[in-house]
């Protein structure tokens, strides 16, 4: 029983962690989409992502460029 309780707990923690990771990624996607539409520059978008999502500069730059590339691919 205790093994099952521990396993349930670990699954819960793991699920929350994955959900949090997904939420962060979703927030970056949402922000980039809207800000790009509104004519923000890439530097401004990166700054907003750093400020709102809490990513470090390098990670934010990478994510923003990746999402912009994906959006551009879809438009082509």
């Amino acid at each position: 029983m205790f093994i099952l309780f521990d396993q349930d707990y670990a699954m819960g923690v793991y699920g929350l962690e994955r959900e949090r990771r997904g939420e962060k990624r979703g927030m970056v996607i949402g922000l980039v989409k809207v800000c790009r539409k509104q004519g923000f520059t890439i530097d401004e978008i990166v700054r907003i992502v750093i400020e709102k999502v809490g990513l470090k500069e390098k990670a934010a730059l990478k994510q923003v460029h990746k999402i912009l590339r994906k959006i551009a691919d879809k438009e082509d």
Binding site: G15, L16, R18, E19, R20, R21, G22, E23, K24, R25, G26, M27, V28, I29, G30, L31, V32, K33, V34, C35, Q38, F40, I48, K52, V53
Partner: peptide
């Protein structure tokens, strides 16, 4: 599956933040 649920919620939240920022 959990990540997908989180991403959906995050996208909406991110879009709202984008509008507010604009």
């Amino acid at each position: 599956e959990r990540e997908r649920v989180g991403e959906k919620r995050g996208k909406k939240c991110g879009k709202i933040e984008g509008v507010v920022e604009t």
